[in-house]
């Protein structure tokens, strides 16, 4: 195994705010959130329902636009009170992998093609798309389901296909919204191990929302959200700097 380069910040956000609605119906989902995530670390995001966890992931993932603040992803300032890039989809495709609470696979593609589609969008040749997709599915132990349609997969299988898709383009930032919610505890362990391995091998950063106290111990740091504010800025647990 090759030696990891020095850790560096992959996600830096400062003063991110997000509110929904206006006037009496206004909900402040994120208030002045500041955090830095480093390569190679697996970070947990905790908080009661409605505290803004999903909103935070969506903001980092450039799925929703914040109302203010500053954000740097993989060394590039992408948001400074407004998006600085017009091709946010390209950004998502190349840098960010999403794992959602529910699998969100495309119902009209089989397992292999659900993974291959993001490779194809990134412009990879067809054979490479298929080969890498099948490899990833096998790696996630759903290789035997590679030709199945999403409707034929169990919740756990579908979730692992979705994880394979999230990993396909080797993203530096992986955002996981309750990735283990649909899995039994054994599978949940496997998925967490896998994310950990990925963080180390690919020098990625992984931020996972969870309610699952079984896996609390597997995070390098834990952030807690309450009413859109970070309670604990995560400083308590700086990542271990892997020295050469």
């Amino acid at each position: 195994m090759d030696i990891s380069p020095a850790t560096r910040p992959l996600v830096e956000i400062k003063g991110i705010c997000k509110h929904f609605g206006e006037g009496p119906t206004r909900v402040d989902a994120l208030r002045d959130v500041t955090m830095t995530l480093w390569s190679g670390e697996v970070v947990g995001l905790l908080g009661p329902s409605g505290s803004g966890k999903t909103t935070l992931l969506n903001a980092i993932g450039a799925i929703i636009e914040p109302n203010g603040g500053w954000m740097k992803l993989d060394g590039e300032v992408v948001y400074d009170n407004r998006w600085l890039r017009s091709d946010l989809r390209r950004l998502r495709l190349e840098k960010i992998g999403f794992i959602f609470q529910t699998h969100n696979l495309l119902p009209f593609l089989n397992a292999t093609d659900n993974v291959a589609v993001v490779l194809q969008l990134a412009g990879r040749p067809r054979e490479e798309c298929i080969r890498r997709s099948v490899e990833l599915l096998e790696y996630l132990e759903v290789g035997h389901r590679k030709d199945s349609m999403p409707s034929q997969l169990s919740g756990g299988e579908a979730q692992r296909v979705a994880i394979a898709r999230a990993l396909a383009n080797r993203p530096r930032i992986i955002l996981a919204d309750e990735p283990t919610a649909a899995l039994d505890s054994v599978r949940a362990e496997i998925v967490m191990d896998l994310l950990r391995k990925l963080a180390v091998e690919q020098q990625a950063t992984i931020i996972a929302v969870t309610h699952d106290d079984k896996i609390f111990g597997r995070f390098d740091r834990i952030f807690k959200l309450r009413d859109g504010r970070l309670e604990d800025d995560g400083k308590a647990a700086e990542p271990d700097v892997v020295s050469p």
Binding site: I63, E94, F98, P107, L121, R165
Partner: peptide, 15 residues
Amino acid sequence: REIAMLKLIGAPDRT
């Protein structure tokens, strides 16, 4: 929803 999903995973308008 699938179209939104495609956009989310990075599919351009062209697709």
